[in-house]
Design a protein around this nucleic acid. Structure first.
Lengths: 193, 193
DNA sequence: GGGCTAAATGTTAGCGGCTAACATTTAGCC
DNA sequence: GGCTAAATGTTAGCCGCTAACATTTAGCCC
């Protein structure tokens, strides 16, 4: 994660304040005019700051939307899965357990972000790339538990793809909790017959 | 697909000739100095042409590497899967059947491309985005065969992710046929126990 | 509350990807 | 060989992003 992404309800230090201003301005402009149509300069100006400053907070435009601090919880959950299961099921089970245990107080803002990502092709690609770290973490854990590197990579990629697809579906609806959406997505790939 | 991607063994018309020159120059420079370090202007110059001309052949730099004309075969194969199977298994089985039936005379050039993509993070994202069309096609077929839209999306994304992960592993090795690599990848996610 | 230091921000200049409008050359068929 | 349409070049510019350097301001200590 590049920068602590807005956890304080009330930002105190100046850095936190401009960070909040940039995120607020960015989300609003993206929702209003679309991601591609919104310029970094516009976001900066709306936040009362310079384009240069924007890049001091985010390494790239897309990072205003992409952030995933869930890795540690996730790999720990995968490590707790039954070693007798094949890697693919261990990964899926781990994701299930991790998200089930996660509190969902910030779901509204997550939904806003995921919605923008889901609707912007270039961001879907960026999203996938940004899960690279999570993927590596999962692979590592699966290998530690005895899987081949190649098998682990396939399992991790596949499970993460299902998770992301579930997130996209969830973001477009209003009648489903985040936890439920994840469960449904995993049900699709954890086929037991 | 944006442009017929080098199928002729001997290009005749001028357009085909410069296209071939651009692709050759691009692959070589990417392999030599890396994708990010290679400039579109450099590729163009090496092909005896202007930067502007490059963009007349490819909508973006990354499109020199990304192309997948396999959609029709794929969705047809999925349509032939047993309707009694759950969507996830139908998608996986379809991919398996499609690639098994595919001739592999051009595997060397495919390997060069996939290798470059696998080693370039930004291209991995682009690759994923570029599978979007294939994904949509799979989703459509699954829905026709009775799946929910959301279920279909998860199944398609997950299976494609496994396929791509398999491709990456294959590209980095020299002792595995393309077909075998795909089979192995699908074995990981088609868990029957 | 004033002052001091470090953090935060601004300025300028520039590169690479990409686009548009218009002019120019060249390929390839009759 | 000549003609038309295709292919290419030119110029100018926007946007994302980076670097080096100068300037301001925040926020802690007294």
């Amino acid at each position: 994660m590049t920068d602590a992404q807005r956890l304080d309800p009330e930002p105190t230090t100046k850095r936190e304040r401009t960070l909040a201003a940039l995120i607020d301005a960015g989300l609003e402009l993206f929702e209003l005019h679309g991601y591609e149509q919104t310029t970094v300069a516009q976001i900066a100006r709306a936040a009362g700051v310079t384009e240069m400053t924007f890049f001091r907070y985010f390494p790239a435009k897309e990072h205003l939307l992409l952030d995933d601090p869930y890795d540690p919880v996730l790999i720990e959950a995968i490590g707790r899965q039954a070693r007798t299961d094949p890697p693919f099921l261990r990964a899926a089970g781990g994701v299930r357990a991790a998200w089930r245990a996660l509190p969902e107080p910030e779901t509204p803002i997550i939904r806003r972000r995921v919605r923008i990502i889901a609707r912007t092709p270039s961001l879907r690609g960026a999203m996938w790339r940004s899960t690279g770290n999570t993927e590596r973490a999962i692979v590592e854990q699966l290998v530690v538990d005895g899987a081949t590197l190649e098998v682990a990579r396939v399992a991790a990629a596949s499970v993460l793809a299902a998770l992301v697809a579930g997130l996209y579906s969830w973001a477009e609806r209003d009648d489903l909790s985040l936890a439920e959406a994840i469960e449904h997505a995993l049900d699709v790939i954890e086929v037991r017959r």
